[in-house]
């Protein structure tokens, strides 16, 4: 178990180099150049351009730029944006915001998804089951920006229950609407997945036997069915949490949440390689850690799974 854990952690090192290199190369290959984009078509002071070129090694060949960047990282210098904000500062500001948003969405999809999934599985074929099928299909089919604007308008502007944008009101008030929108598609998946997975377990021999022995329905659910049906759900949720962090570009845009997604979008447009590489690397590490946690959770959920 311990060796397995260490091996998994060590695996992250080549992944780190691989991704930084790939993302850096992709940023480098983007058409257009940062200088033109940065100055937004206004007269450019040649001295300013030279300053930016020197600061960001823009005249160096790609491979030199990349190693200067990696060298910087090992001396604790993660680089800065063209506006002179250090990437570390951006991390410190944006990662907590994104984490709060992702956590809100995660809790919504986890609690609502699993709870409603259990309910629909228990009441299979009932009116609520049919209604939830319709509702989840609708949620999955609705593009996130449509849902985002509708929810913002209805609950934020029209009814005025929650702030329509920004994070001034703090957690959780400001994060409920965007959290719900961000969670919507995954919530529907979790619901369907829980229902399906539970129904499968309900049909298995040991559950039938437990039922035949006259165990209460609640005990069957808690001790025999739910735990066994959780494996596919945990797999999905683990991957999803990492995706929630990086994939909130649209939601963060609609609700003006200053998180990672928004910064990535901006930085890609401005060709700020160091910011993009830094943030994507953080996201990838988050993804790897979530994957590791999921794998470890398998062992907890199903003692038959062992790691060497």
């Amino acid at each position: 178990m311990g060796r397995y854990f260490v091996r998994r952690l060590l695996q992250m090192i080549p992944v780190f180099f691989g991704t930084t290199f790939l993302i850096y190369a992709l940023m480098f290959a983007l058409p257009g150049n940062p200088i033109d984009t940065l100055s937004r078509g206004k007269p450019r002071n040649p001295a300013y351009l030279q300053y930016i070129i020197d600061q960001f090694n823009l005249n160096d060949p790609f491979i030199v730029q990349y190693f200067k960047y990696i060298g910087g990282i090992f001396t604790g210098n993660f680089g800065k944006t063209f506006n002179n904000v250090s990437v570390i500062d951006i991390f410190m500001q944006r990662i907590p915001v994104t984490l709060q948003l992702a956590a809100t969405a995660f809790v919504i999809e986890l609690v609502l998804g699993i709870a409603l999934g259990i309910w629909t599985a228990l009441r299979k074929g009932g009116p609520f089951d049919h209604l939830s099928l319709l509702a989840t299909l609708l949620l999955i089919a609705t593009p996130i920006f449509v849902l985002g604007y509708v929810v913002q308008w209805l609950f934020g502007v029209k009814l005025g229950w929650l702030p329509p944008a920004g994070i001034q009101a703090g957690w959780p008030t400001s994060y409920i609407l965007p959290g719900f929108v961000l969670a919507s598609a995954s919530f529907a998946f979790v619901l369907r997945l829980t229902r399906q997975s539970l129904l499968e377990v309900f049909g298995s021999d040991y559950v039938r036997a437990a039922r035949a022995k006259g165990l209460p329905a609640w005990t069957i659910l808690r001790k025999y069915s739910l735990r066994n049906s959780l494996i596919p759900i945990v797999t999905f949720l683990g991957a999803d949490f990492a995706a929630l962090m990086g994939g909130a570009v649209i939601t963060e845009g609609i609700f003006n949440i200053p998180g990672i997604g928004q910064q990535l979008y901006q930085s890609i447009r401005l060709h700020e390689s160091v910011v993009v590489v830094g943030l994507v690397t953080v996201l990838i590490v988050a993804y790897l850690i979530m994957n590791l946690l999921v794998d470890l959770l398998y062992g907890v959920l199903d003692p038959r799974i062992r790691y060497e």
């Binding site: 934020g156 502007v157 329509p164 944008a165 845009g253 609609i254 003006n256 928004q262």
Partner: peptide, 14 residues
């Protein structure tokens, strides 16, 4: 970063 969000905030009095 998105002026539509600002527009929603203005309408809501925020």
């Amino acid at each position: 970063n998105d002026d539509n969000a600002a527009w929603a905030d203005l309408q809501a009095g925020n």
